[in-house]
Amino acid sequence: MKKPNDIILRAVTNVAVVIILTFAVYLFFAGHHNPGGGFIGGLAFAAALTLLFLTYDINSIRANFPFDFKVLTAVGVLIAVLTGVGGILFDQPFLFQAFDYFDLPIFGKTELATAVLFDIGVALAVIGTAMVIIMTISEDR
């Protein structure tokens, strides 16, 4: 079988993956006051990884991205649960969140909320689950 030469797809992917990953991070941080959040940010991140899997092959991507996605899912769920339990330690209900305004060097006055930590867990769980599903259905029988 002749070797395929899809240079246009590879050139487009190298640019588009950067845009999609930036958009995923934007969606992740926009989720506090605007549409977005951990779930859809994780899905956009998984879409970028899927595009890389489609263009290149699994082995060369896994060599540069050496996480076991099942472990990533477990760590994400654990982070989400532990940030929920953290509210109990301060005599507050489960999944309680707090926020305050800080003066950061570059960003100026910024609102920092503990819900972002919970969102990190959700995003990791979504990325891990989506990639496990995609890699499972792409395996050879």
């Binding site: 092959d57 699994i58 060369s60 792409s138 395996e139």
Partner: peptide
């Protein structure tokens, strides 16, 4: 085949 395990 949608995703290849090894391209080469």
């Amino acid at each position: 085949k949608v995703i290849e395990s090894d391209r080469n």
